[in-house]
Simulated assay, not measured.
Amino acid sequence: MTGTPPNEADGDAADGDPPEATVSLSAAVVGRYEKFSRVNSPYSAHDRGRAVDLYPRDGVGRSPVAGTVRDVRTVGCPDRPYAADEDHLIVVDLADGWCARADASPGTVARILHVVPEVSPGDRVAAGDALGPTTRSGFFGQWVDDHVHLGFRPPDANPRRASGSLPVAVDVPVEPVAWDGTGAVVERGPTHVVLDGPRRSDPGPPFAALASDEGVPLDGGVTHYAGGGTFEADEGASAPEGTTLSLFGTEIGTVRTDGADARAPGVDWGSVDVRANGERVTGLSLFAARGDRFGVKVVCPNRTFEIGESVTLDVVPSDDPIRLGVG
């Protein structure tokens, strides 16, 4: 799993329906990070693109926003042997200038998680400032890299809650890269491997992502999280609501735009399994990432693949697809 707990700091009632205003992150904000995703998470904070995970290159949790630190809190985590037993919430009152550039209302508040805070209430921070080191949170699945979680709350809303967060748009074009699902293992961890594909050979936008068969760049956990999404494509590749998307020749889901940013709509995954060399694995973890080789993890806690081993992925219909929750 990745993301943040839905209501980590208190037990207040939900704040009602989320506002429709969208906070827009520019290339200058996102370009400080190695990769990003809006919906690669089972947690409600990411539901329908209402948060973004930003993956730094160096283990430093740099601020994606400018403003004044309002609050710093430590919260408990699920007990995971591979992770810390506590996480941290940093609340920032956004500067008016930052809000104006992001199309956010004055008084909007940022919520930042998964960083061990080296800042205190009252500190002023600029975009790019170090807030502290990232932490391996117990809210992560074991295959998830350390990252900065960023969400926004409207003025006068409870900043400690995730439910009711504002939609987040990332105004960065993402190149969709086709792939046949074959490659050799170049990285392995306890619960995942990375293959040497997909690759892109021509210069393009800084970020790229795995494309559906229709040429739409994909975001999320395919299909181990119930819903996923798409990125805004570099050449305008888009999928209207109701469009069926396929991967490796099999239908994987349907585009929906209700409650999602129209530039990067969501996807309701269908009932399918991902297989590696003919055996079912948990799924594919997708992001927009930099570089020629990027951004696809094969999540396979019950399989072992060796470095250099050839792997072929496919997708097949399933009567019992894997769906991971937050427990």
Rank of each mutant, 00 (worst) to 15 (best):
W269C: 06
V298G: 01
D268G: 12
N302R: 14
T312L: 08
P265T: 13
K297G: 09
I252D: 05
A288W: 01
R275D: 00
D273V: 09
G253L: 11
D261R: 12
G270W: 01
G308W: 07
V274F: 11
V274C: 12
G270E: 05
P301D: 06
A276F: 06
T282K: 11
R263W: 03
T312H: 09
E309Q: 15
V296W: 04
D314R: 04
I252S: 07
V255P: 05
R256F: 15
K297Q: 15
D268S: 14
V281D: 01
E306N: 08
W269R: 02
G278I: 07
L284F: 04
D314T: 07
G259I: 12
D314G: 00
A276S: 11
A262F: 03
T282A: 12
G308L: 10
P301K: 09
A264V: 11
R303I: 00
D261Y: 09
L284G: 02
T312N: 03
G291A: 06
G278P: 00
E306W: 03
A260T: 15
P265K: 11
N277E: 02
G270F: 02
V299H: 04
R303C: 03
F294Q: 03
S271F: 01
G270Y: 01
R293S: 08
G291Q: 07
D292Y: 01
D292I: 02
G291T: 06
D268N: 11
F287T: 14
L284H: 03
V296C: 05
V298L: 14
G253R: 09
G278L: 05
V311G: 02
